[in-house]
Structures are given as structure tokens and as C-alpha cells.
């Protein structure tokens, strides 16, 4: 299932919540959707989930227009909002059963689908508990179960990790990894960028409703943060000053400085050029114990491309 967001625009009165954003993601991809508060993430996700209608632009699911066929899109999309609607007087099992009925599952198929989902999201033990009695983590599991009950190809998760304890976060991450293995196309928004880096293979960054960056994590990293920091640890720390001198004369190297027992510097070259540099240093008889390069992570990119503006 290929999800293409095309020139999506949404206005609320005079406020432009989403301003012509375009991106796409595919089956098996987990795309992180990041941006400051008020950037338009939730609005975009609500449009993909057919809760809102776009003012302009469209979302295509395998080429099928969501504006023209929202009812067909609903079969293909599962949406997990940031909080579970507060249904009182209904148990977890009844809640999932209702949504299975609502998506047209009947008879034994429905029973089997609900049981499978209860096991998958590990809520079997609490299936007879009322929704209002559940913890935040359990509610999030039920919400995920509700979104998965009709086996959608696309999963939209709006801040699913917000308010979860570390254990629940790890479990959620594992569930998402399993879903990605099952070829679901997943779009997930979160403010915890380190977590997104671990589970996402793509990212969409927006601010003030406008798209800033999109692509696979590697593409975005290359584009937004072409330099890498390299750390060298020498067997003999006495060689450090000599190494610093050598590095200062080397093209593509900037900002070489000693950091503890290591020497750190910014390297603007490609990976083969980094390899050549290592070879060159070894040839000059530097006894290198460790040659480590670290790229900027999602958090660095986010901080560099966004300005923190809200609408």
C-alpha cells in the first residue's frame, strides 16, 4: 500500500493549519512525523484518517483518492488518536467487538479477529475490564487494537507514546516493529525523537503547516547534516598533539580538538574519503585504537531545520 500525500492544505477560517505538504510512504515503512506543537501534524493525520476533509490537495492510497472515496480509504486506514475516547460502561472486549462489527466483520470471522487482536495487543487478561478503569498504557493498547481490528494496510498513530511509562514504550515499539514486518505502512508522530530514530526508517518534518524535510532517515541526514563528527582514540595519548597538527593540515577537516583522551573533529567528506583519511593517518604511524564516526541524529536535524514557530 502506497500512501501519497499531495499538496495537502487545510484552513480553519483564516488559519492555515496545513499548507500544501507533499510526502509519501510505503508498505513496511515506519515514517516519523515530527514538528513543533501546532505544526499541523494532528490535522494531517486526521485528514488521512478521514476525520477532517482537506481544503485542497488529496491523499492517495494506492492511487485511490481519499477525497473521492473516503469510505474505501476507511477500510485501509487504522487511526490511533492521542487519547482513547472516554466510553463509559463498556468493556475492552465489547469495545473491540463493536468496532469489528462496525467494519463489517460478521459471525465467526469477527470472533476470531477480535480474539487475535486481543492476543496481539496483549489485552486478553483485561478484556472484561471497563475502558474507564484502564491505565494509560493499556488504553493505548486497546486503541491500537481498535485501529487494527479490520487489518488495515495503513496505520496512523498520533503521539502513541505520550504519557506511557518506559516499559509500555518499549512494548509499543516492539508492536510497531512487528507491524512493520507485516508490511503495514505506518506514520507515527511523536515528540520523543530518540525513540523515533530507533523505530523509523523515514521521517517527515513540518513546521507552521509547511514541509521542511522528508525522506528516509539516511537521505535526510545526508541532506540536512552532511558533516560527521569523527573521534579518534590513540594507543599512545602523547601522539595527540601531533595528530591535531596533522589534522589541521588535512583538507575536509574542521574544528579538530582534544576531548579527554580522544581527538574529535568535523569531517565534511564522504565515507570513502573518511576511509582514506584513516589509511593516511595509519601510514603516518599514528597508532589508532579507535576511529569512530557519529552522525547527527534526528534531534539535531530537527533542531537545525525548525525554528520553533507556531501558528
Amino acid at each position: 500500500m502506497k500512501v501519497q500525500v499531495r499538496n495537502l492544505r487545510k484552513e480553519f477560517g483564516k488559519t492555515v493549519a496545513v499548507d500544501g505538504i507533499t510526502f509519501s510512504f510505503d508498505s513496511g515503512h515506519v515514517f516519523g512525523f515530527v514538528g513543533p506543537n501546532g505544526a499541523g501534524k494532528t490535522t494531517t493525520m486526521r485528514i488521512i484518517a478521514t476525520i477532517e476533509e482537506p481544503t485542497d490537495g488529496d491523499v492517495l492510497l494506492n492511487g485511490i483518492s481519499l477525497r473521492e472515496h473516503p469510505e474505501l480509504a476507511r477500510r485501509a486506514v487504522g487511526y490511533v488518536p492521542d487519547s482513547l475516547p472516554a466510553h463509559a460502561d463498556i468493556t475492552v472486549h465489547e469495545y473491540l467487538d463493536f468496532y469489528a462489527r462496525a467494519y463489517g466483520l460478521r459471525g465467526r470471522k469477527r470472533t476470531e479477529a477480535v480474539s487475535a487482536i486481543e492476543e496481539f495487543t496483549n489485552v486478553t487478561g483485561i478484556r472484561d475490564k471497563h475502558l474507564k478503569a484502564l491505565s494509560k498504557g493499556m488504553k493505548q493498547r486497546v486503541s491500537l487494537g481498535r485501529a487494527l481490528v479490520h487489518d488495515p494496510d495503513v496505520l496512523i498513530l498520533d503521539e502513541p507514546a505520550a504519557g506511557l511509562d518506559p516499559r509500555a514504550r518499549v512494548e509499543l515499539r516492539e508492536l510497531l516493529a512487528l507491524l512493520a514486518e507485516r508490511k503495514k505502512a505506518i506514520l507515527i508522530s511523536s515528540h520523543i525523537l530518540t525513540e523515533l530514530t530507533e523505530i523509523c526508517n523515514g521521517v517527515v518534518i513540518i513546521e507552521k503547516g509547511r514541509l521542511l524535510e522528508t525522506g528516509t532517515i539516511d537521505e535526510v541526514l545526508k541532506k540536512s547534516a552532511p558533516r560527521r563528527t569523527v573521534a579518534i582514540r590513540l594507543l599512545d595519548p602523547a601522539q595527540s598533539s601531533e595528530l591535531l597538527k596533522e589534522l589541521l593540515l588535512t583538507p575536509l577537516v574542521e574544528n579538530a580538538r582534544p576531548v579527554g583522551s580522544e581527538v574529535h573533529f568535523e569531517f565534511a567528506g564522504s565515507e570513502p574519503e573518511a576511509c582514506d583519511l584513516l589509511g593516511q593517518l595509519v601510514a603516518r604511524r599514528f597508532r589508532i585504537l579507535e576511529f569512530r564516526q557519529t552522525r547527527a541524529d534526528l534531534e539535531d536535524i530537527f533542531m537545525s531545520v525548525t525554528k520553533g514557530g507556531v501558528q
Partner: peptide
């Protein structure tokens, strides 16, 4: 033109993976 809609047959249940 809109592409032909997918078959409206109910989706198969997800296989159980809790034990994995």
C-alpha cells in the same frame, strides 16, 4: 479516474504473535 475499489470482503484476522 478513480481506480477500481478494493474488494469489500472483510479482512482476515491478524495472526497471533503475542508469543513471539
Amino acid at each position: 479516474a478513480a481506480q477500481p475499489p478494493p474488494a469489500p470482503a472483510p479482512p482476515p484476522p491478524l495472526p497471533t504473535v503475542a508469543a513471539e
